[in-house]
Amino acid sequence: MRKTTLFTLAFLVNLAFIYAQNIITVDNSPGSAAQFNDLQSAISQAQDGDIIYVHPSEVNYGVIDVNKPLTLIGFSHSSSDKETAIDDIFLRNNASNTTIQGIHVTDVISTDGNSTTIENIVIENCLVDDGIYFEDAGMNNVTLRGNIIRRVGFVTSFAGSNNYSNALITNNIITDVIAVKSFQSITIKNNIFLSPNAFRPVFNANSASGSAEIQNSIFYFNTSSSPDPNEAGVTFSNCLTFNLSSGPVVALQGTNNLDNIDPLFVEDNDNTTFEPLQDNYQLLGNSLARGAGVNGEDLGLFDGSGFVFDNVGFTDGIPTINIQAISTTVAPGQNLNVIINTTNQ
């Protein structure tokens, strides 16, 4: 009898993580033929585990609440002619096991007001204009990869925005600051801090308990002052600093760091503003940041780990399609000639 009980329990547990994974299409552009015009309505109708394709549009999809396990996939955040833009994404109490990819979030991703810690959250290839804030009950098990984010967490005044643990923050461009509290379980590696906060690009709200370690990252300033990335409770291993302007960067605290050395990006368009259609943050062949990582990998976004940073935010594994040419007018019954260009990302 006991055996039967245990088997039944195991079966039910497995069922809890097997989702249907239907694809739902959403498009709020005029004349759209998608299954939904409104993203929040699509979320309401979706089943746990469904994938929602949020098609590019000139109209922002607005403020949405995610309250179930879903995968939201946008077309890109910075493609030259089309992007998928959502103003705010609030991950609510039941949003564990949610993935967000290829979306331009024009304000914040937040757990504001939650009473339950949500888990297993993946945010990839997104552009987040303001920040990702782990408020109230926050998150556990988090991957932030391939994004351009202004702020991850918040410094001092909103220390409650840093309630996240077991996080992998890799291969991102950070334009202001990463703030941590549960620093022992958070990996911060191979990011580029692009014109970040000149005096606090990384903040540890729990510095009294020890130090967060930043690895293989590039701090790229453009300021006439003398930036000082050092902060209580933060150490740097195999990182590089450079100021495109006049002031030297204060030497990093830690080991094997390269202070005040131009990383020699292939193209940064001569400034420190992220310009996705022009910048190329791969390293030139003679860059000292090549092979300077803790395990001999390159510093910055391209560490050879298998993940490839995409400037415009195409989602890894999702093919893109572009109708390159089409007959704008055909006679009745005549074939419509169309040329497509499609690429697996």
Binding site: P319, V330, P332, Q334, N335, L336, I339, T342, T343
Partner: peptide, 11 residues
């Protein structure tokens, strides 16, 4: 993984 192709779609 990369393709450019033309089609004649019946209308």
């Amino acid at each position: 993984g990369q393709l450019t192709q033309s089609f004649a779609l019946p209308t």
